[in-house]
Design a protein around this nucleic acid. Structure first.
Length: 327
DNA sequence: GATCCACAGGAATCCTCGGGGT
DNA sequence: ACCCCGAGGATTCCTGTGGATC
């Protein structure tokens, strides 16, 4: 029931799966595939499809290295590079920080093993996107890039970078519709719940709350099941489902805010407490709220980060800009 | 329309941390 | 024990922008 669980049969996205498989097919002959870019809203199955396709591929191709890197967790170029290098060895002696980025890159350039496919998830969170250009030039290395919005990754590239990665094949993921979500949930029910614990109507109710986001849908099902178990009822009723909706949504939001620093969390809370707040007022409030407040400039950097994470939105520009919570 | 102000955000610089070499 | 190095964060410095005021 965990959201990372990859079902054996990904039947909900046949077109996307086969498209991605086609792109990756050259590795079966030892050739290098073109880089690909999966984009679309969260909970649309991008990560799931990428991992699944790669796993399938690995069963058919003897010589294949793969790696999954979440660029949110490894958001600097150095960290991402480290993890990419890690999967093909060569990192045992660089646990130290004092190894320069260039040396890691050099080792990767010297890589001459079998074809190597890297999934770079949430690549829009990668701070140093230049590194993608470096990856692209590594022989036998190909990338599957994943992000929510196309422009977050490709807009701020300089010309060189975007032209080099223009061959990148883009696959768009749309939100799941109600029926697809129900199918996904049925799958989980079969693996994780007693028969008859929940009927199709209940799943539809969950899918409706989830609004196209599979991660939310699965979270709802999980929490509803747990709640029902606590109440020692055998069926998951509509009331139970409705009761866990807000809990589940804050839980998912919590996962995002947990990754913020304490100062960033304070800022986020200040913004959620008001419906609109300007930069000056916000800084005053922030200074009152914490000891050792950072500078204004740093706060602006934090705000930019919160925007990137889609936690807040900025309205208007320069002087009259206000910030408000999103979602 | 000239000037001032409040703010955004880019670039350069400073600071800190952890680890290696001597 | 000491110094040095590199990464990454924070700060300082700076330029640009749009609204307000005269």
């Amino acid at each position: 029931m965990r959201s990372e669980f990859v079902p054996n049969d990904v039947k909900h996205r046949p077109a996307e799966v086969s498209h991605l498989s086609d792109i990756l097919r050259p590795v079966t002959k030892g050739n290098r595939p073109e880089p690909s870019f999966l984009y679309g809203p969260s909970g649309a199955g991008k990560t799931c499809i990428a991992r699944h396709t790669l796993e399938q591929l690995q069963q058919n191709v003897v010589d294949l290295n793969t790696q999954y890197v979440n660029c949110w967790e490894e958001h600097t170029g150095f960290q991402t590079l480290y993890h990419v290098l890690d999967a093909v060895g060569n990192t045992h002696d660089i646990h130290r920080r004092s190894t320069p980025t260039d040396e890691l890159l050099q080792r990767l350039r010297e890589y001459d093993g079998p074809q190597y496919i890297v999934i770079l998830d949430e690549v829009d969170q990668l701070e140093d996107k230049e590194i993608l250009y470096d990856f692209h030039r590594i022989q036998n290395l190909s990338m599957i890039l994943i992000a929510n919005r196309e422009e977050d990754v490709f807009s701020d590239f300089d010309g060189r970078l975007s032209s080099r990665l223009q061959t990148c094949i883009r696959i768009r993921f749309n939100q799941y519709d109600l029926d697809q979500l129900v199918t996904i949930l049925e799958d989980r029910v079969q693996w994780g719940l007693e028969q008859g614990a929940i009927e199709t109507e209940g799943l539809e109710r969950i899918a409706d709350h989830a609004a196209g986001d599979a991660r939310v849908a699965i979270g709802l099902l999980r929490n509803a099941a747990r709640q029902a178990a606590q109440q020692q009822t055998e069926r998951i009723s509509d009331d139970v489902i409705d009761a866990v909706v807000s809990e589940t949504k804050t839980e998912i939001r919590q996962k995002t805010t947990d990754k913020l620093t304490p100062h960033q969390q304070v800022l986020y809370e200040l913004i959620t407490d008001t419906d609109h707040i300007g930069g000056g007022d916000l800084y005053d409030a922030y200074r009152n709220a914490v000891d050792n407040a950072k500078t204004r400039r740093t706060m602006r950097n934090y705000l930019a980060k919160l925007q990137q994470y889609n936690l807040i939105t900025a309205n208007g520009n320069t002087k009259n800009r206000t910030y408000s919570a999103q979602g």
